[in-house]
Amino acid sequence: MYGGFKKNKTINEVLDKPTVLTIYGMIKSQILSYVNGVIRAGKESVVFWAVSPANDDIALKTYLVSTSSFKKRASYILGDPRFSRIKSGTRNLVYLWAKKEYQNLTSCIGCGISVVKPIAVRKNVLALEFVGKNGVPEKTLVECQVNKKDYKSAILLIEQLYKKAHLVHGDFSEYNIFKTKNGLILFDLGSAVDLQHPNSQELLKRDINNISRFFVKRGLAVENPIDVLKKIRNEL
């Protein structure tokens, strides 16, 4: 092991020098003990399997500072009353995005909504509860057989976000919901916006339509998305 990283397991472009220093800081603060290999890699982030000093698994989500994708994501922050001061520059935007996801998850946990538990955030690095075992994450909805109960649970998550946490996910899909033996667990809440955001209602419609489309493709009957929208808004 070298400086908290298992040899040859974390060589990736995500680990630029500032990110490495951030992770070292989390190790020194005893948030992490060491970092294993990559669990998931995407355009905007890479998730590592890490381990805490108590030997608990941690999902270490590291946002890519070098990616241009975050410039397209600025609209999810601009207009959100919680983040009125935005410094210029991609790095600052990425840091704010990580902070926003941590804050969204914390709000959801406080409301009793089934999301991954946030542990800590430092700059572009977010430490999260590991949903899975021995470095293998639970499967997402898209990887599983689904049923009517899953559909109802997914719609309930959207409703709870809206009514309890006063948030709209903004990127709700079968790819960011774990299916576990204890039910569904939502993750990737960086895109979630406050209800006062000017695009919140359009994002709500899109979330409902997207997840409804997934279940229809799997051969399940779903409620009319318009009726679901009205119920969530208490218009029925």
Rank of each mutant, 00 (worst) to 15 (best):
N209Y: 11
G37F: 05
L161P: 02
L156A: 14
H169Q: 09
V146C: 00
L128K: 10
I31M: 14
V121T: 03
K71M: 12
F187P: 05
E138V: 05
T106L: 15
F5H: 05
L203E: 03
L195R: 08
K17F: 15
P137Y: 06
G183C: 14
A41N: 10
L96C: 07
T140A: 14
I113D: 11
D16K: 11
S114G: 06
R213M: 08
F214I: 04
T10S: 15
S114I: 13
Q201E: 15
N234S: 11
G183I: 10
A120N: 08
K72N: 13
Y76R: 08
E235Q: 15
G112P: 02
K133I: 12
I109R: 05
V115S: 08
R213A: 15
T67G: 01
V142T: 12
I23W: 01
P225T: 00
D16G: 09
K6L: 15
K231I: 08
L105V: 04
L184T: 00
C111Q: 08
I232M: 12
A74C: 11
D56C: 11
K17N: 12
I158F: 03
L220V: 09
G132F: 01
K230T: 03
L156D: 07
C108P: 00
L126S: 08
R233E: 08
L78N: 08
Q160V: 00
T180R: 14
S33Q: 11
G79F: 13
D16W: 07
S191K: 02
V51G: 05
A221I: 13
G89F: 14
F5K: 09
K230G: 02
G112Q: 06
I113R: 11
L141K: 02
G112L: 13
D57C: 12
F172D: 05
L157W: 04
K139C: 09
P118I: 05
A192L: 09
N234C: 10
E138M: 12
S107Q: 13
D57F: 06
Y95S: 00
F83T: 01
D207S: 07
D227W: 10
N234V: 06
D150G: 01
R218Y: 01
D56I: 03
Y102T: 06
Y95I: 02
L64K: 10
L15I: 01
T62Y: 04
Q103P: 02
S66K: 10
S68P: 00
E143F: 06
L105M: 14
V228Y: 10
V116K: 09
P137L: 11
L204S: 04
M26V: 01
V116C: 05
N182S: 15
I177P: 01
L184P: 00
L157T: 02
